[in-house]
Design a protein around this nucleic acid. Structure first.
Lengths: 156, 156
DNA sequence: TTATGTAACGTTATAATATAACATCTTCAG
DNA sequence: CTGAAGATGTTATATTATAACGTTACATAA
């Protein structure tokens, strides 16, 4: 069944995501503490970008403090190390699918269902950089957020 | 003096912006009421993207209600008619510099000073649309927000 | 090994941004 | 003029995020 397979894939990708995070944190001499690891897992488990207070709900069930700074501090850490991205238009957070340094990218976000797909289109990002230059802007590594409608939602 | 000239230009552009808005609203059978016009003026006057509560402050001095819905409703109207844009990363609002229908665009936003420059790079926007297509995303007209550092801030 | 400084986390309070819901007033088509 | 839709006023509250300060855990150097 498609559902079961998808869940199994998700479990695998959570494991892989955490493993990548371990490796990156090691490189950066950063500590992936139980709390931070758990927040990352929750973001990885979520199939869509997820809000901070939703994560906080889930953390409650895990004996962590249920006060907002708990989740916001963990998210800040994960953002700093490029393990998750923040989607400004929906105030949500999503796991990075290509976590490594110098990470440019496009993030397509469905305005209907919230699904987000990350893409690394090198040439396009270069063009955006050039366009910024023309206006005096230097564009640092970042995720450019683009709102659209995904194919699934167009069917409905 | 550069300062004076800039203020005069600003006044001109406020007049022009309001005139364009008048025209667009007329076309759309929409009413640019005193409140909405005033909010648009305030956004036009501001040299940088401005927050809703800052606008609300200014509205107080003009005998409008100082409750949040006042400004948010006016902003919603202006957004709907493409007269202002919302910058999600900073929760701010900025006047559109090319107000017309079917408006695609890039918005470069300085992460230091907040300055925003709007650009219509037709080819680049097409490329972004194509890239979305490849991932099953349909990209409607919208402003793509890109964070960077402006030349003035790089000097400092 | 213990002292010690820094990082992480807990806790309380509050800031900043935005919307819901309902009452009243205005406008304008018929 | 009137009635319906639109615009605004008003009160309350939701949602997202951070400040400030105390405590605990951790790395590491003496």
């Amino acid at each position: 069944m498609a559902g079961k397979q998808r869940v199994e894939q998700a479990v695998v990708s959570v494991k892989r995501g955490v493993a990548q995070a371990e490796s990156i944190c090691k490189q950066n001499h950063a500590r992936l503490t139980p709390l931070r690891r758990r927040v990352l897992e929750l973001v990885l488990i979520s199939r869509k970008p997820v809000g901070a207070y939703k994560l906080l709900e889930d953390l409650k069930h895990d004996d962590f403090s249920d006060a907002p700074p708990t989740v916001y501090r963990a998210l800040e850490f994960l953002l700093t190390h490029g393990l998750v991205h923040r989607i400004a238009k929906s105030n949500t957070y999503v796991a990075c699918t290509h976590p490594h340094d110098d990470h440019h990218g496009l993030m397509f976000v469905c305005r209907e269902c919230g699904e987000a797909i990350e893409s690394e289109e090198h040439r396009l990002l270069q063009d955006i950089g050039r366009c910024g230059d023309e206006h005096g802007f230097r564009i640092p590594n970042q995720i450019v957020e683009i709102e659209g409608i995904c194919s699934a939602c167009r069917m409905n």
